[in-house]
Design a protein around this nucleic acid. Structure first.
Lengths: 119, 119
DNA sequence: TTAAATACTTTGAATTTTGTAGTAGAACTA
DNA sequence: TAGTTCTACTACAAAATTCAAAGTATTTAA
């Protein structure tokens, strides 16, 4: 979303849209939250269907927004772990009702075992 | 998101992504929820920045998904009112924590008076 | 006769997201 | 020694989404 600082009226949701209101935003936050820590390739397979470039760019966005933290281990082959920051964990908490709504019977079908895990 | 009915694993959030995980999805649901009923042009000005074609297509999507209801009055000039369905209202309820998180100090700035209104 | 009002649609361009393939560098394998 | 494997990405062109601007339909008001 383009900068609207000159716009007349903005809605409180505006700020989230760029990160949350994207196709994979909620999924990624939730997925990391479910597992605590996740590596890039683990995310790739959990989020079946995302492209590597999209995932990489989302992770960078989230890191810049301080929603997730990235830990790089100096190994070969490389090892990188992503986890939620405090702020990210708060966001995930706020997303839970949405996930519950989505999983509710009559709304959408759950096809797998990758469900809501509250720590 | 493409049909993944043949995919191995889907996440419960998958189903919402196409509607909610779009740039204006949450904004529109929240906006209609805030006002009860809204006309097309009212939505256009509340959601400063959206293009008419995008709004029209989102409204059609939401109608098809039975998240909103459309009432057409036979008048000239025309008059059309959009409101949330029961399912839409449930969704909005589920979004409220997210809105609250977003409005929280330190997360994002609120620029206008168009805030959370709970019925 | 012209303008105003509303809810859109149409068009082509700009922006985002996607899929496929490729890169780096050490270690293991033949 | 040469080739393969492993992981976390990047590059790039193609596909999908969103954009702005202009146009459509219809009746009443000036």
């Amino acid at each position: 979303m383009k900068d609207q600082s000159n716009a007349i009226c903005l809605c409180p949701l505006d700020g989230i849209i760029d990160t949350i209101g994207k196709k994979w935003g909620l999924l990624i936050i939730n997925e990391i939250g479910n597992h605590g820590k996740l590596r890039y390739n683990e995310l790739m397979s959990e989020l079946a269907g995302i492209s590597p470039s999209t995932l990489a760019s989302m992770l960078k966005d989230f890191e810049r927004e301080k929603l997730i933290e990235k830990e790089v281990f100096k190994q070969i082959p490389p090892r990188v772990e992503y986890s939620l920051s405090t702020r990210g964990r708060e966001l995930r908490e706020a997303i839970i009702p949405l996930i519950k709504w989505a999983t509710k019977k009559g709304n959408y079908t759950v096809h797998c075992s990758c469900t809501l895990v509250k720590k």
